[in-house]
Design a binder for these strands. Structure first.
Length: 470
RNA sequence: GGCCCGUUCGUCUAUCGGUUAGGACACCAGGUUUUCAACCUGGGAAGAGGGGUUCGACUCCCCUACGGGCUGCCA
């Protein structure tokens, strides 16, 4: 039975540490986090490291780091599934004692041989252990696996919050192995025991586990435990509609950080991927927590759309207070393996952020437009800027310079002076802005020329103009 | 092969039997503009196909096609 609505919500994210944190996994974590945090619940993190061959501490570290960057905080310590192996085994033995499980002496070679033959003959490869009803007196003195004595008749029904009612005929389900013949627990058993022991009320995970839910349900029933609410969410696909894999480009969350997407934008985008709350597109964490619910999750896999990700990220960068943006930019620099900012650069950037953040969709773009405040004199113009600084333009700039000397340093005055000088030469401000920008930034792309002048100040502005017109 | 799930504009989606099928991103055209970003106006763009049920289906049912997942003593 699903947990009652009144019981506190407990969700968990349970990745296996076999590499980077997959972007799809990050979304699964986000959904669990939103669901718990929006309901005053608990969000737990458990590492499914029962596969000793493939689990690495580096991968666990990557998961922790990724979630931390994404801003998904979990409650309590990180739980290692491997550390709980004795408890898993204990449950397996208990099921054995209660007759809900049995010892299976079939060797893996035998099973494999059976499956091969079945495949060759086009028969079902479902392995039905001959030991299920064997007389214990006939048990050999050999290693055995403990298999669940699953019902053979009837059906196992999953009430899934996303997928609806899903029915599996029991004849399609085999007696899953709970404890391997070497005494170690399988994932199938471990998840159920852990979720139960940790008090997980809502299992929100990828729908690649939907089939597993049926077999796991049988363990809950065998142990007489309350079943969690299941919510199997569709996987994320690449832009081509195929399962997201490395050939699509970035799949690891850390790659997104290194590409300079802000975490808030990622959260917004990922939440919006496969879930909707009416027409809401751009929203805050508070909104998402308040709105997120299982019945808003779509049933079809969603494709990644970088354009939309960028759009949302741009809006989030613009909406983030300067004081919060700076540390994020520094973290990005580090993640991308770029040199850190000097104190002077930090100060400059802090002053310039107001005119930078609403024109950038990613941090690299913001930094590119920050060149005027991050760089040092002399500002060697890039190719396009050099073209803008033709002799005629330099002549006009030379005229402008002394007028700036005495102007009061505010936007209106500056703009007035520039407009007047341009007019003296029969041109609009637009014509003069090009070379002015080239002289100040050394680039043809930057914030407004007047904003730049305000940020760097009179002295520096004049110096740069002199550099350019010398 | 078997089992399970899915299918609304290019993409993410709204709709929960009665709508000119809405929004966002993207795209195209025009405008604004000091570059970029942004902004304004307009435009093209969708219910996989076929059967039912119903006064009425994108919405409910069935079939087909296509896509995906699972089918391990992996997780």
């Amino acid at each position: 039975m699903p947990a009652a609505d009144s019981t506190p919500v407990v969700t968990r994210f349970a990745p296996s540490p076999t590499g980077y944190l997959h972007i799809g996994g990050a979304r699964t974590a986000l959904f669990n986090w939103l669901y718990a945090r929006g309901r005053n619940g608990t969000f737990l993190l458990r590492i499914e490291d029962t596969d000793r061959e493939r689990s690495t501490p580096e991968a666990t570290a990557a998961i922790v780091k990724g979630l931390t960057w994404l801003g998904l905080d979990w409650d309590g310590e990180v739980v290692s599934q491997f550390d709980r192996r004795h408890r898993h085994a204990e449950v397996a033995r208990e099921m054995l004692a209660r007759g809900h499980a049995y010892k299976c002496f079939a060797t893996q070679e035998e099973i494999e041989a059976f499956r091969e033959a079945a495949r060759a003959e086009g028969r079902s490869t479902l392995f039905l252990s001959p030991w299920r009803d064997a007389d214990p007196a006939t048990h050999p003195d050999a290693p055995y696996a403990i298999r669940l004595r699953a019902p053979r008749e009837g059906a196992t029904v999953i009430e899934d919050a996303v997928q609806g009612t899903v029915t599996f005929r029991n004849e399609q389900l085999d007696d899953m192995v709970c404890l391997r013949s070497d005494g170690t627990p399988t994932y199938m058993l471990a998840v159920v025991v852990d979720d139960h022991d940790m008090g997980v009320t809502h299992v929100i995970r990828g729908d690649d586990h939907l089939n597993n839910a049926a077999r796991q349900t049988q363990v809950y029933r065998a142990m007489g435990w309350a079943e969690p609410v299941w919510a199997h969410i569709p996987l994320i696909h690449g832009p081509d509609g195929k399962k997201l894999s490395k050939r699509h480009g970035a799949v690891g969350l850390e790659e997104y950080q290194a590409m300079g997407y802000p975490a808030a934008g990622m959260r917004n985008y990922l939440a919006r991927l496969g879930w909707a709350h009416g027409d809401a597109e751009f929203f805050s964490d508070a909104d998402a927590k308040a709105w997120f619910d299982l019945d808003g999750i779509g049933r079809a896999p969603a494709r990644l759309d970088f354009k939309k990700l960028e759009n949302l990220c741009g809006q989030h960068i613009a909406a983030t207070p300067d004081a919060a943006l700076l540390p994020e930019i520094e973290a990005f620099l580090e993640a991308a393996g770029r040199p850190p900012l000097s104190q002077a650069q930090k100060d400059g950037l802090a002053r310039a952020l107001y005119c930078l953040k609403d024109r950038a969709k990613t941090f690299p773009e913001l930094l590119e437009k920050s060149h005027f405040v991050l760089g040092k004199r002399p500002f060697l113009p890039d190719e396009a800027a050099a073209r803008a600084l033709d002799p005629v333009s330099r002549g006009i700039l030379k005229e402008l310079t002394p007028q700036l000397q005495n102007a009061s340093w505010d936007r209106d005055t500056l703009e007035g002076v520039a407009t007047r000088v341009a007019a003296d030469h029969g041109m609009g401000l637009g014509k003069l802005a090009g070379p002015l920008r080239a002289a100040i930034a050394g680039r043809t792309i930057s914030p407004s020329v007047f904003d730049m002048m305000l940020v760097i100040g009179r002295e520096e502005t004049l110096a740069r103009l002199q550099d350019a017109t010398a």
